[in-house]
Amino acid sequence: MTATSQNSTTQTPKRTPLYQSHVDSEGKLVDFSGWELPIHYGSQIEEHDAVRTDAGMFDVSHMVIVDVKGSDAKAWLQKLLANDVDKLKIVGKALYSPMLNEQGGVIDDLIVYLMNEEATEYRIVSNAATRDKDMAQFHKVTEGFEVDLNEREELAMLAVQGPKAVEKLAQVKPSWADTLAGLKPFVGADLTDIEGQDWFVARTGYTGEDGVEVIMHGDEAPAFFEQLKNAGIKPAGLGARDTLRMEAGMNLYGHDMDESVSPYECNMGWTLALKDDRDFVGRKALVSKRQQAKDDNTAMKQVGLLLTSRGVLREGMEVTINQGSDNEQTGIITSGTFSPSLKNSIAIARVPASLSEDDKVQIDLRGKGKFVDVRVLKLPFVRNGKPQFDQ
């Protein structure tokens, strides 16, 4: 159950329009950020492997979809976000960006789509777990801007992912074939003329594989789910979603980043548009803190860790660098799991930026002073089903 409300009555998790589809598919349902969602449908490993080798689908209807309209929509987003929506030159193009607080920490990471040529309409897709503080920040920054925000709670979203995802989706929806064939990564297309109102498809995802995310009205989601399932696209749950995103080196909010973490510390520096003097929320503090961290040698960075011996790397474990030496340093594992693709444990960790390939990196797996060596890797671990490092 979720936390109790102010009147002390217990709140039950919310259900997406695909709740009954999960039940009918024998999904094991759990409470995830206040939503009742499947952790798996019998085998997390099989679901993971289906996405890596064929096609799988995830219910991501709990994500927050907000449509933004107004003459100041672009200017508002340029104030709100650390990345710059001016980069969006064609309708449907997507932009990944952190949204920062005044101290330069990450409130959330989200995707923005340009929805019309005049740059007066956009769509934001953000995380369910941060919904309340995201909406509060959106509205706070609207002061002084002519912009309207419309949260689209009636919509559902399915992520169809894997090397055969687009091919199988085109078989289910032949009328989409031309649209899908021309859809480049991080670009979306309105399907209203083909499928009806509220249908939208984008070549985005959270798995490190090819695929799309499809938005539709909630009432139409169960039938679509069944069509995909009948075409051999395997339903997959939160468990597989987590192992897939970790292999792909993708952050999970609240674990690998939060409001105390700078984008530079979680491998998101590439999302910061700093070349001009655009005054976005958190910019001044972000730049100042980065310089200070360099000056006092406290800068941190994100790396991948691979454990080739037995055991599992877990969130919260301390990373020890050059243990016992004069230059001993420490870091922290922010996400850890067993990788089904690599057959070893992997982790995402935040470590001193000065870490070099000559440093010895170890983990005390059981907290008893018995350190094991781990290999430091540049993320991602896996892309398009293949390891991204020499084995």
Rank of each mutant, 00 (worst) to 15 (best):
Pro13Glu: 11
Phe32Leu: 15
Ser33Thr: 11
His40Met: 07
Gly56Asn: 01
Val60Ile: 14
His62Ile: 05
Asp67His: 11
Ser71Thr: 09
Ala73Cys: 07
Lys74Gly: 10
Leu77Asn: 10
Leu77Phe: 06
Ala82Asn: 08
Asn83Gln: 02
Leu95Trp: 01
Asn101Val: 15
Val106Leu: 12
Glu118Leu: 10
Tyr122Asp: 11
Ile124His: 02
Val125Cys: 03
Val125Arg: 03
Arg131Ile: 15
Thr142Pro: 00
Glu143His: 14
Gly144Thr: 06
Val147Asn: 02
Glu151Val: 12
Arg152Ala: 14
Leu158Asn: 00
Val160Pro: 07
Val166Gly: 02
Gln171Lys: 09
Lys173Ser: 04
Asp178Ala: 15
Thr179Gly: 12
Thr179Ala: 15
Pro185Met: 01
Val187Ile: 12
Gly188Phe: 02
Leu191Gln: 04
Glu195Tyr: 11
Arg203Trp: 07
His217Arg: 14
Glu220Arg: 13
Ala221Ser: 04
Ala221Glu: 01
Pro222Cys: 14
Arg241Asn: 02
Asp242Glu: 13
Leu244Lys: 06
Glu247Asn: 09
Gly249Glu: 03
Met250Trp: 03
Asn251Tyr: 12
Leu252Met: 11
Tyr253Asn: 12
Asp256Ser: 14
Asp256Cys: 03
Gly269Gln: 08
Ala273Ile: 01
Asp277Lys: 13
Asp277Leu: 10
Val281Tyr: 02
Gly282Pro: 00
Ser288Trp: 09
Gln292Tyr: 05
Asp295Thr: 12
Asn297Arg: 15
Lys301Leu: 09
Leu305Thr: 07
Leu306Gly: 00
Leu306Ala: 00
Thr308Met: 10
Arg314Lys: 14
Asp326Ala: 10
Gln329Tyr: 00
Thr330Lys: 12
Thr337Tyr: 02
Pro340Gly: 07
Ala349Lys: 03
Arg350Thr: 13
Val351Asp: 02
Val351Ala: 05
Glu357Arg: 13
Asp358Arg: 10
Ile363Tyr: 05
Ile363Lys: 11
Val374Lys: 01
Val376Arg: 01
Phe381Ser: 08
Arg383Glu: 14
Gly385Pro: 07
